[in-house]
């Protein structure tokens, strides 16, 4: 926690052999810790001008590169909203970037798809499909 107060974090990632070994950075061109993390305050991120961004304001950090996504997010069109669409009836909760995306590895892993429900067959389907997955209406 206090390490980087006395020992300035270096731009090179050599130290990763000793510390932060669990971090496998795969965030596009973003290859250095200090691109995002503040060099002396471990609990803060870094603005373009070197000033601190509080952890709770992480959106401002991501917006440095992902401007168009940030614009969509502000409008409520990126990221799943939770709660109420009508905020006069209930609270709407908006998640911040890192609640869904892993900043060290932003690419999502593959998902196991849930099994396909049995759909009723439709008269207009091609004949091959009708024989493979026939709906079975029992009266």
């Amino acid at each position: 926690m206090e390490c980087h107060k006395s020992l300035t974090a270096s731009w090179s990632t050599n130290r990763l052999w000793v510390e932060h070994k669990s971090v496998k950075l795969a965030h596009g061109n973003n290859k250095f810790c200090l691109n995002c993390h503040h060099p002396t305050n471990r609990n803060a991120f870094k603005h373009d001008d070197g000033s601190e961004i509080a952890e709770s304001e992480v959106v401002a950090l991501c917006a440095r590169c992902h401007g168009t996504v940030h614009r969509d997010w502000k409008a409520g069109a990126h990221g799943r909203p939770n709660g109420y669409w009508d905020t006069s009836l209930g609270r709407q909760q908006k998640l911040t970037c890192i609640q869904c995306h892993d900043p060290h590895h932003p690419k999502f892993p593959m998902l196991q798809s849930l099994p396909a429900p049995t759909y009723p067959k439709r008269a207009a389907r091609s004949s091959s499909e009708n024989t493979q997955h026939e709906g079975n209406p029992k009266h």
Partner: peptide, 12 residues
């Protein structure tokens, strides 16, 4: 018309 609604496994 050429879509598949019965795919399975890992996606996408």
């Amino acid at each position: 018309e050429e879509s598949d609604q019965y795919y399975d496994g890992e996606v996408p």
